[in-house]
C-alpha cells in the first residue's frame, strides 16, 4: 500500500474507532441547527427563508471546530515527527489527513443536511441543491481550516485560536455557498455562477491548503 493511502486509511480508521470523532461533527451540526429556532422563534416561514443560511453557518462551525485535533493528537503522541520523515512530501501527507478528515467528518454533515432542512421547513426540491452546495463547498472549509490546524498546533494552542485564524478566510466560501443555495431555491439570479465559483474555491484551497499547512508545520519546528 502506498504511503498516501495508508495514512488516509489509518486516519479514517482512528476516526471511526472508539474515541474517534467521526460523527461528532454531525452531532454538533444537529445541535447548532436545533438552537437556531430557539433564538429566532418557530416561525416556519421565516425559518424556510433563512434555512440555507442557517445550514451553511452550522456546517461551517461544525467542520472548523472538528479540525481542532487534526494535528494535535499526532503532535502529542510523537506521530507528527515521524510523519515529517516520511518518504513522500509533507504536503501530500497533510493532504491525506485532510481528505480523511473530510470523508469522516464533513461527508456526514452533507448526508444529514436534508433531515435538518426538513426541520427548517426548507422545501423538498430545494434540499438537494443545498446539499449539493455543501458537498462542493465543505472541501474548501476543510482545506482552509487545515492551515489553521497546522498553525495552532505549532503554537500549542487549540480551540478558539483555530476559529479566529480561519473564520475570516472562509468568508468567500460562505458568501458563494449561501448565494448558490438561495439562487437554486428562490432565484432570480442563476445557480451556475456562484456554484462554479464555489467549486473553484474548493479546488484552489485543495492546492493552497496543504502547501501552507506543510510550511506552517515545518516552520513550527524551531
Amino acid at each position: 500500500m502506498s504511503a498516501f493511502t495508508s495514512l488516509l486509511l489509518r486516519d479514517m480508521r482512528i476516526a471511526v474507532r472508539v474515541g474517534g470523532g467521526a460523527l461528532m461533527g454531525a452531532l454538533f451540526f444537529l445541535i447548532v441547527v436545533t438552537m437556531m429556532p430557539f433564538a429566532i422563534g418557530p416561525d416556519l416561514g421565516l425559518l424556510a427563508r433563512i434555512g440555507p443560511a442557517i445550514l451553511w453557518l452550522g456546517a461551517l462551525l461544525a467542520s472548523l471546530l472538528a479540525l481542532d485535533r487534526l494535528f494535535a493528537n499526532d503532535h502529542d503522541d510523537g506521530s507528527l515527527d515521524l510523519l515529517m520523515m516520511g518518504s513522500m512530501p509533507l504536503e501530500l501527507a497533510v493532504a491525506a489527513k485532510a481528505i480523511a478528515h473530510w470523508l469522516t467528518t464533513c461527508l456526514p454533515l452533507v448526508v444529514i443536511t436534508p433531515v435538518l432542512g426538513l426541520m427548517l421547513n426548507v422545501e423538498m426540491h430545494a434540499m438537494g441543491w443545498v446539499s449539493l452546495t455543501l458537498l462542493a463547498g465543505t472541501p474548501a472549509l476543510t482545506f482552509i481550516g487545515l492551515i489553521g490546524a497546522a498553525l495552532s498546533v505549532t503554537l500549542r494552542r487549540g480551540g478558539l485560536l483555530l476559529a479566529v485564524l480561519v473564520l475570516p478566510l472562509t468568508v468567500p466560501v460562505l458568501i458563494f455557498g449561501v448565494a448558490a443555495a438561495n439562487a437554486a431555491i428562490v432565484g432570480p439570479a442563476p445557480f451556475g455562477p456562484p456554484f462554479t465559483i464555489l467549486c473553484a474555491l474548493s479546488l484552489a484551497s485543495f492546492v493552497l491548503g496543504p502547501v501552507a499547512a506543510a510550511a506552517a508545520l515545518r516552520h513550527g519546528l524551531e
Binding site: 461528532m24 444537529l30 445541535i31 418557530p42 426538513l118 426541520m119
Partner: peptide
Amino acid sequence: YWVWDARLTSMLVLFLLYLGVLA
C-alpha cells in the same frame, strides 16, 4: 413534517441529550 411545537421540540432536546451521553 416538522413543526417546532413544544412537546416535539423538547423530545428533540431529550434526543440531543441522549446523543451527548452516547458521545
